[in-house]
């Protein structure tokens, strides 16, 4: 099995395939259908033994860095417009890269306005594992 991180971005990544706007502009039932799709997707992965975790992040975040000894950390943001913004992630544990691609494709088809798939770009990243014992 291999673990993969599915990253959902509010912004960033390739140019959106369709412009589905932001969720606050959708009809309430469309928003609800979208959320339900996400829940169903996670539940399905749990039943197939492939779900590890999923989390959503708030839309606003702050950049933080060290600023030298004895000084408080420096913060920057939140920004109204940043180049890239992570919306949330899901970790899956699957048999193959092909399976990870298949699931990412399915998650990307979550419904948007009018119930149509939003064709959302998702970022797929392999998670580093423990080293194998036998390597010679």
């Amino acid at each position: 099995m291999a673990k993969y991180l599915l990253l959902k971005h509010y912004r960033g990544g390739p140019t959106p395939y369709v412009d589905f706007g932001t969720l606050d502009q959708w009809k309430p039932e469309e928003v609800e259908a979208h959320f339900q799709y996400m829940r169903d997707f996670a539940a399905k992965l749990e039943s197939t033994g492939e779900f590890v975790e999923g989390l959503a992040a708030a839309q606003e975040g702050t950049f933080v860095r060290y600023d030298g000894p004895g000084r408080p950390p420096v913060t920057d943001g939140p920004f109204a417009e940043t180049k890239d913004l992570i919306a949330g992630w899901m970790v899956i544990d699957v048999d193959s890269y092909e399976r990870a691609l298949e699931l990412a494709g399915e998650l990307s088809a979550a419904p948007g306005p009018g119930g149509d798939p939003i064709y959302e770009w998702l970022e797929l990243r392999p998670v580093l594992t423990e080293p194998p014992t036998v390597t010679e």
Partner: peptide, 8 residues
């Protein structure tokens, strides 16, 4: 294997 008990 670092997965939730329900998944396993």
């Amino acid at each position: 294997y670092l997965v939730p008990e329900a998944t396993m």
